Amino acid sequence: MGKREIHFCEKCGHPTKREIPEGDTHERDVCPSCGYIAYINPINIVGTVPYLGDKVLLCRRAIEPRLGYWTLPAGHQEVQETTREGAERETEEEAGIHAEIPSAPYILLDIAHADQLHLMFLARMKDESVNPGPETFEARLFSEEEIPWDKLAFNSVEKSLRLFFADLKKGAFGFHYIEKHTPGKFL
């Protein structure tokens, strides 16, 4: 994602300058007029790995980025929303499914180079019915062999699916935490 910068003060509109504020350890965008310091923090992406038996539900994206590619239902967490609430909302918006989502997260992909945290919850579907929203062309269940691996929207989706199917084979779903510092495929 690269270095994100704020060029104008959010409080007074004056141009900012890049510096390390007194008592801080990182460069920030600081307003020389009013002294406001802009803190840019990672983006939380929240979603689910919806499944029914040995199949996973994927959504074909009707929006950019990666229009037409397959993904798990996920998106940006909203303010004043818990990560679980955000995952439920995104799953409802993108897939329109009825699912049971436990309170404990399943996967945390800490993607430092992209300034993102991807927090995924398991979502056990109650039935096969789907009612995708406007961000999704179609949503459907796939077995591991049917997954369109070369048509997945993001590396994080592929990693989440591989973890899910490995856990399914073991018969146990544990928490996964993975750090990624450079662009490219997850190992």
Rank of each mutant, 00 (worst) to 15 (best):
H181E: 12
F173T: 05
M120L: 12
G68W: 06
A38T: 06
I37T: 12
E100T: 13
M125Q: 06
G23R: 10
G53I: 10
N44C: 02
A62S: 14
Y177L: 05
Q80F: 12
H7M: 11
E27G: 07
V46N: 01
D127E: 14
P73D: 03
F154C: 04
T91R: 04
L122C: 04
V79F: 10
I147W: 05
Y36N: 08
P42C: 00
K11M: 02
T83E: 04
T71M: 08
F165L: 05
L161Q: 03
A172Y: 14
A112V: 15
Q80R: 15
S156Y: 04
G96F: 10
K3Q: 13
Y51Q: 05
L168C: 01
E19L: 14
K11S: 07
S33Y: 11
I6G: 05
I20G: 05
P73I: 00
I63N: 07
K159E: 10
T182H: 13
I107V: 15
D110I: 03
R89G: 11
G133N: 00
Q77S: 06
A139F: 11
Y177N: 02
H98F: 11
P134A: 07
D29Y: 04
F154G: 04
I111Q: 13
I40Y: 08
K126S: 15
P148Q: 00
Y36E: 11
K55S: 15
E146Q: 15
K180S: 06
D127M: 08
I20F: 05
E146F: 06
I6P: 04
S160K: 00
L57Q: 13
G174C: 01
P32I: 12
D110R: 06
P50N: 13
W149E: 12
